[in-house]
Amino acid sequence: MAKRPTTAELYQAKLIPEEDVVAAVEAFMANPNTSAFLMGHGYALDLHAAVAASPFALGVLATPDAKPASKRIAVRTAILLARPV
C-alpha cells in the first residue's frame, strides 16, 4: 500500500496553497486541540495529532523562553511533515 503524501508534498504539487498552511499554523496556535482542519481541495489534517507526533515541535512548544516565531516554525514543520487524509 502506498503512503499518503505529506502536506509538504501536496504543497509542492500546488494541491494545498500557502494560505492554508499559514491558516493551519494560526489555528493550532489559537487552539492546540484543533483536530480536523480542512486544507486544499478536500484534504483534512488533525493539527493536534500532527504536532503531538513531532518531538521537535513538542520540545519547542514546551520551552518557556521560546519566541513566538520559533513556536510557529516548529508547528509549521510538524504540519508539513504530517500526512493529511
Rank of each mutant, 00 (worst) to 15 (best):
residue 59 G to F: 07
residue 35 S to E: 15
residue 43 Y to M: 03
residue 79 I to E: 03
residue 59 G to Q: 14
residue 58 L to Q: 15
residue 83 R to M: 01
residue 15 L to D: 13
residue 78 A to E: 05
residue 67 K to M: 11
residue 15 L to N: 11
residue 46 D to P: 00
residue 41 H to F: 00
residue 71 K to R: 15
residue 33 N to M: 12
residue 33 N to P: 00
residue 36 A to D: 12
residue 39 M to P: 08
residue 24 A to V: 01
residue 27 A to K: 11
residue 44 A to I: 00
residue 17 P to S: 06
residue 39 M to V: 04
residue 59 G to Y: 11
residue 74 A to K: 11
residue 28 F to I: 10
residue 62 A to R: 15
residue 14 K to Q: 10
residue 83 R to L: 00
residue 16 I to E: 08
residue 26 E to C: 04
residue 24 A to K: 09
residue 37 F to I: 12
residue 21 V to H: 03
residue 80 L to Y: 05
residue 75 V to F: 06
residue 46 D to S: 07
residue 81 L to D: 14
residue 45 L to C: 11
residue 51 V to E: 06
residue 62 A to V: 08
residue 11 Y to C: 02
residue 76 R to P: 02
residue 13 A to K: 07
residue 78 A to Q: 11
residue 13 A to C: 01
residue 39 M to N: 13
residue 37 F to P: 06
residue 43 Y to S: 02
residue 60 V to M: 13
residue 59 G to C: 07
residue 3 K to F: 02
residue 11 Y to L: 08
residue 51 V to C: 07
residue 32 P to T: 03
residue 67 K to C: 02
residue 66 A to C: 10
residue 69 A to N: 10
residue 32 P to E: 13
residue 81 L to V: 02
residue 13 A to P: 01
residue 9 E to M: 09
residue 26 E to R: 11
residue 37 F to H: 15
residue 81 L to P: 02
residue 68 P to T: 06
residue 34 T to Q: 09
residue 80 L to K: 12
residue 82 A to Q: 10
residue 51 V to S: 07
residue 33 N to T: 12
residue 21 V to C: 04
residue 22 V to W: 05
residue 15 L to I: 01
residue 39 M to I: 02
residue 15 L to Q: 15
residue 79 I to A: 11
residue 27 A to P: 03
residue 85 V to Y: 15
residue 58 L to P: 03
residue 58 L to W: 05
residue 58 L to R: 14
residue 5 P to A: 07
residue 62 A to L: 12
residue 74 A to V: 07
residue 85 V to H: 15
residue 26 E to P: 00
residue 66 A to S: 14
residue 70 S to G: 12
residue 41 H to M: 00
residue 84 P to M: 08
residue 70 S to V: 03
residue 54 S to T: 06
residue 8 A to H: 12
residue 52 A to W: 02
residue 54 S to W: 03
residue 56 F to Y: 14
residue 4 R to P: 00
residue 4 R to I: 00
residue 80 L to D: 03
residue 11 Y to H: 13
residue 8 A to T: 05
residue 11 Y to R: 11
residue 85 V to S: 15
residue 8 A to I: 00
residue 55 P to D: 14
residue 24 A to T: 04
residue 68 P to E: 13
residue 43 Y to F: 12
residue 5 P to V: 00
residue 50 A to D: 02
residue 18 E to C: 02
residue 10 L to K: 06
residue 26 E to A: 10
residue 62 A to F: 04
residue 6 T to Q: 11
residue 34 T to M: 01
residue 39 M to D: 10
residue 13 A to D: 09
residue 62 A to E: 15
residue 61 L to Y: 07
residue 71 K to S: 04
residue 50 A to T: 07
residue 19 E to A: 06
residue 47 L to M: 09
residue 32 P to F: 08
residue 42 G to E: 11
residue 35 S to M: 10
residue 71 K to M: 07
residue 10 L to P: 01
residue 46 D to I: 00
residue 22 V to I: 06
residue 52 A to Y: 03
residue 64 P to W: 04
residue 38 L to D: 15
residue 32 P to S: 08
residue 50 A to C: 05
residue 16 I to P: 08
residue 14 K to V: 01
residue 31 N to P: 00
residue 25 V to I: 09
residue 85 V to K: 14
residue 73 I to M: 14
residue 6 T to D: 05
residue 82 A to S: 12
residue 22 V to T: 06
